[in-house]
Design a protein around this nucleic acid. Structure first.
Length: 491
RNA sequence: GGUCUCGUGGCCGAGUGGCUAGGCACAGGUCUGCAAAACCUCGUACAGCGGUUCGAAUCCGCUCGAGACCUCCA
C-alpha cells in the first residue's frame, strides 16, 4: 500500500508553516479543541470548527492513531469585558429568562449536541465542563502564583504579563510584541485594578449580583476565561500534547494566554501543533455573535430566516464547509448553498450507481491513482476540497463506465466503492440523508403502484399514469422514468 | 496606529514558478408520451502597475480594494 500516514503535513500556527505530523507518543494522539460557550444556539460559525476538527479526528483515527479528542464546554460564563461592572454572560441571560444559570447552560448544551449529531459530528472522547474543574483551575492559579507570574489584588488574581515576558516570549503565537501592544492601548486604559491592560484574570472575585461563584482562598469568585482550557488540557492530555485547535479569532488573546499559563506553571509549551480554522463570512464580513449577523443551525435546517431562500439540510452544510479549505474564509450565500446541495446529491447518487457497473476484463481508469490522490489531499493539511474534487472525477468515471465509454475490473469496482466509503462517508463524514431502506410494506405497495402505472403507460393511458405520479409526488415520493424502468425515492 | 490574511472565469472555491482542480449556473447535445431527472460536451480566469526569470496567477516591490486580530466571539 502506498498509503503513507507518515507524510501528513499540517500547518502549525506557531511556526506559520506546514510541518510533518509526528505525534509525541505514537500511536497516541492528544487533541484539544475549544468548544462552545453554552449561552446561545449554535450558528454556522460554530459548525465550521466542529466539522473540521471532526474530520481531523476521523482522519487521524483512519490512519490508525489512537486519538483522545477533548472538546470542552464553557459553562462557567465569563466577563463581558474587563470593566468591573462586567456581567457574566450566562448570568445575564438567566436573569432575562428567570432561569437558573446551570439550566441555561444545560439547555444550550443539549441543543448544541443535537445540532452536532445532525451534522454527523462524532462526540469527542472527553467533553469536560469548566464548572466541573474548578478545583483543577484553582490549583493552576496557585502554581502560577507560587512561580511568581501572577498577583492577587482585592480577591482577584491576575496573570502578570510584563513579568512573564521578561523570561518567556509572549506573543509568539499571534506574532505580537508586548511593547507595541501597550503603546497602542495606553490611551484606552481606564481605571482598573490590573497592573497592565494586558494582564488577564486567572481568578475573578464575584460581584454580589454574580450568581455563578465558587469558594477559593482568594475570594468567592470564578475562574478566568483562559484558564479552563489550560487546566483541562493538562488534566486529560498531559503537560504537552499534540494538537490544539479552534477558530482563528481565538489566537489572541485566548490561546496566547493558554501558552503563557502553561509556561508559567510547568515551564514548557503545552502544544506541539496549533491549528486554527478561518471564519465563516456573510457579505464578506465575519459571522459572529457580536455583529449579530449570524444564522443559527436550526434556522438553516428549517429555512426559517429572512436571509434564507430555503432550508438546507445538515449534510448540505457539512458539504459546504468541506468544499473549502479550513484555513480560508468561507462565504455564506444562498447560491453557494444551493450549489452545494446539487453537488452533494450528484456525489451520493453516483455512489449508488457503483453497484450497477458491469465488470470488465481490464480497467481503462486507474483507481489506485484516484485513491492516492484523495490521500494526498488529506495529507496536505487536511485539504478536503482536493478530496472532493477527486471524488467528482470519480463520479464522471462512474457515469462513463455505465455508458460503456470506460471500463473497470471487478477488483477496481470494489476499490472504487471502498474509496467512496472511506473518504466520503468515513473520513469526510458525509452521509446519505435519503436512505431508501423502507419497510417491505412500502416497497410492495410501490411496486404495485408502479406496475399499474406501467400498464397504463403501455396502453398510452397518460392520464392515469400522470395521476399516479402526481399523487405520489404530493405524498413526497418522486417517481422518475428511465430506460431501465421507473425509480422512486422519498424526498 | 500595530500585527496578519486575502483579492482566481457569472457565482462558490482549490492550486501556488512551466503540465489549464472541482462544484453550481449558462449554452449545446443524448434520453423521453409528457414531466422531471440523469448523463455527455463546453470556459486558458487568477485586482492594477512595475521587477526577477527562458517562463509567474504562483517570487519581489508599489498601488488600489476587502477582511481578521489588538475587547467577548468558532
Amino acid at each position: 500500500m502506498v498509503e503513507s500516514k507518515s507524510r501528513l503535513q499540517i500547518f502549525n500556527t506557531l511556526t506559520r508553516q506546514k510541518e510533518l505530523f509526528e505525534p509525541l507518543n505514537p500511536p497516541h494522539v492528544g487533541m484539544y479543541v475549544c468548544g462552545p460557550t453554552v449561552y446561545g444556539d449554535a450558528h454556522l460559525g460554530h459548525a465550521r470548527p466542529a466539522v473540521i476538527f471532526d474530520v481531523i479526528f476521523r482522519y487521524l483515527k483512519f490512519l490508525g492513531y489512537q486519538v483522545r479528542y477533548v472538546r470542552n464546554i464553557t459553562d462557567v460564563g465569563h466577563l463581558e469585558n474587563d470593566a468591573d461592572e462586567g456581567e457574566d454572560k450566562v448570568e445575564q441571560k438567566a436573569r432575562l429568562e428567570r432561569l437558573e444559570p446551570m439550566e441555561i447552560a444545560q439547555y444550550y448544551s443539549n441543543r448544541y449536541h443535537y445540532n452536532m449529531d445532525q451534522l454527523n459530528v462524532l462526540r469527542p472522547s472527553i467533553e469536560p465542563l469548566a464548572s466541573g474543574h474548578i478545583i483543577e483551575q484553582q490549583e493552576l492559579v496557585k502554581k502560577i502564583l507560587s512561580n511568581g507570574y501572577a498577583y492577587e489584588i482585592n480577591g482577584s488574581v491576575y496573570f502578570d504579563v510584563e513579568k512573564y515576558s521578561k523570561n518567556y516570549p509572549y506573543g509568539e503565537l499571534s506574532g505580537r510584541k508586548l511593547e507595541e501592544m501597550i503603546a497602542f492601548t495606553r490611551a484606552l486604559e481606564g481605571k482598573s485594578e490590573k497592573r497592565s491592560p494586558y494582564d488577564f484574570a486567572l481568578w475573578k472575585k464575584a460581584q454580589p449580583t454574580h450568581i455563578m461563584r465558587w469558594p477559593s482562598t482568594w475570594s468567592e469568585g470564578f475562574p478566568g476565561w483562559h484558564l479552563e482550557c489550560s487546566a483541562m488540557g493538562n488534566k486529560y492530555l498531559g503537560e504537552k500534547f499534540d494538537i490544539h485547535g479552534g477558530g482563528m479569532d481565538l489566537i489572541f488573546p485566548h490561546h496566547e494566554a493558554e501558552i503563557a499559563q502553561s509556561m508559567a506553571a510547568y515551564g514548557n509549551q503545552p502544544v506541539k501543533y496549533w491549528l486554527h480554522n478561518n471564519m465563516v463570512t456573510i457579505n464578506g464580513q465575519k459571522m459572529g455573535k457580536s455583529l449579530g449577523n449570524f444564522i443559527t443551525l436550526d434556522e438553516i435546517f428549517s429555512g426559517n430566516h429572512p436571509q434564507l431562500e430555503k432550508a438546507y439540510s445538515p449534510m448540505i452544510i457539512r458539504f459546504f464547509i468541506l468544499q473549502a479549505h479550513y484555513r480560508s474564509t468561507l462565504d455564506f450565500s444562498n447560491d453557494a448553498l444551493q450549489a452545494a446541495e446539487k453537488a452533494l446529491k450528484r456525489l451520493i447518487e453516483a455512489y449508488h450507481q457503483i453497484d450497477k457497473i458491469p465488470s470488465s476484463e481490464a480497467s481503462s481508469i486507474n483507481i489506485h491513482e484516484l485513491r492516492q490522490a484523495c490521500f494526498d489531499g488529506m495529507n496536505d493539511d487536511f485539504n478536503s476540497s482536493i478530496v472532493l474534487a477527486n471524488l467528482f472525477e470519480a463520479v464522471k468515471m462512474i457515469n462513463l463506465t455505465l455508458t460503456g465509454t470506460e471500463t473497470l475490473t471487478h477488483d477496481d469496482i470494489e476499490l472504487l466503492k471502498l474509496t467512496f466509503n472511506d473518504f466520503l462517508f468515513q473520513i469526510l463524514g458525509l452521509a446519505d440523508e435519503n436512505p431508501s431502506d423502507n419497510s417491505n410494506l412500502v416497497n410492495e405497495l410501490m411496486n404495485l403502484l408502479l406496475e399499474l402505472r406501467q400498464e397504463a403507460r403501455d396502453r398510452k393511458d397518460w392520464a392515469t399514469s400522470d395521476r399516479i405520479r402526481e399523487r405520489l409526488l404530493k405524498m413526497g415520493i418522486e417517481v422518475k422514468d428511465s430506460k431501465d424502468g421507473p425509480t422512486w425515492k422519498i424526498l
